[in-house]
Design a protein around this nucleic acid. Structure first.
Lengths: 233, 233
DNA sequence: ACAAAAGTGTTGTCCATACACCCATGG
DNA sequence: CCATGGGTGTATGGACAACACTTTTGT
């Protein structure tokens, strides 16, 4: 390319670009976040989101995937860009611009040993410790965003195991929206969408009667996903 | 700060950070986008979004405001971060990461002379010329986003003049959603929200009878904005 | 007086909510 | 046999789409 162009670019500042991941999980205890204890400065020893820097010839999506894989061992994870935080003072070290992502992980799937090695731990969503920098803001924004988005796409499905019960699903939604739902109506709404396949199996962990297990019908879902509003109550 | 920390940061690449603005306007002809003809390389002479680079000690919001002010002369504009585009090849020059913003402008308010000087022009939304780099993607994402968001917040209000008629508002929504609405039902829905103040003035531009002008009741709106879904039909 | 946009009224349908009730089973 | 969570049925009210209708006024 022309020298003139190179010169044009070089007039402007360059910045470190970071990626931080808000990692959600869900189990009996409820909605959780995966956090790490930093083993490097600044703020060594404090809790933070898992993050890293954008690599050479890499895009942000791939950087987020790489970071997630390093921490959890998982490569196929629901991952979405959230927002870019750019306050010059957000990192006390220097002006680091950070793009936050959020991810959904099935807690049972992931590599506990790997996580251990990174000093990572799951925290219940309402028991998050103080976080470094603006990571608290990132978490809040992620929560706000999934609460909105979830109305159009059942992203929460990514948090449940392959086979789940209707009460499991209800519990997940009650966690996300911090609100109780009528089980009869919840069930009807969910069933009416026609994206769940009933299995001939029951889960008896939570009741004597046992609840039927369901699978998510992904084919049918991908046909419908642009046409309906999934969740509004 | 400690030298060790500085060293830690310095291990990583730095990047140029750009901001690009998807600027929406609305008038009789419909929904429009403000585009500029680049007067510098690369891609000189082609149409593009208005953009610029992140300045020293600046955050992205302020960079977007600065850029918007330079082009339109307006300082108080509805502006929101959209998404960060980071493909290493998106700019043929070098790896420039760009955060896109979208803005709403009242076409009549802004500085036509200033715009002229930048080689800027309004284009109807369905007559957008080919754009440089990934700007087409940015426009598409902006449209998708406002169509979603608008269901929760009447952001479209930012596009209308202070005083507007119900048919004006209907026309705006018909442009955004590319869909016709029943005027009786549209009116009822809008009125039922209780965020419009009726004025004792009519606009007779579009009919002999004339349509009453309304103002947006911002106080009442800010009370309600988190509680209701504004638009869903 | 009539065309055309502004604005009102009426009706049937759908669907979210509330809640009463039945089912299955381990203790 | 009963407590507990799973699951079904039904009645009610409110929201909305469809559409018939009235109002206003410049030509």
């Amino acid at each position: 390319m022309a020298t003139a162009t190179k010169k044009y670019y070089s007039l402007h500042n360059k910045y470190h670009l970071a990626v931080d991941c808000v990692i959600f999980g869900f189990d009996k205890q409820g909605l959780k976040l995966l956090l790490i204890q930093r083993n490097f400065e600044p703020e060594k020893g404090k809790w933070s989101l898992m993050g890293g820097f954008l690599g050479n010839q890499e895009n942000l999506d791939n950087a987020a995937k790489r970071i997630l894989k390093a921490l959890t061992g998982l490569s196929h994870v629901y991952l979405e860009q959230l927002y870019t935080f750019s306050d010059p003072q957000r990192d006390p070290g220097e002006h680091v611009v950070s793009t936050a992502y959020y991810a959904f992980i099935r807690i049972k799937d992931f590599d506990a040993e790997l996580t251990e090695r990174h000093g990572a731990r799951w925290f219940e969503i309402n028991k998050i410790p103080p976080l470094i920098f603006d990571h608290q803001k990132m978490v809040k924004k992620a929560l706000d965003t999934i609460r909105q988005k979830n109305r159009f796409l059942p992203i929460g499905i990514e948090l449940l195991p392959e086979k789940f019960t209707i009460p499991d699903l209800q519990h997940l939604y009650e966690e996300i929206y911090e609100k109780k739902y009528d089980n009869a109506n919840f069930r009807k709404k969910v069933m009416s969408m026609g994206i769940l396949k009933k299995l001939n199996e029951k889960n008896r962990e939570n009741s004597k009667k046992g609840a039927y297990l369901y699978e998510f019908d992904r084919t049918r879902f991908s046909i419908l996903k642009n046409d309906f509003m999934w969740f509004q109550m």
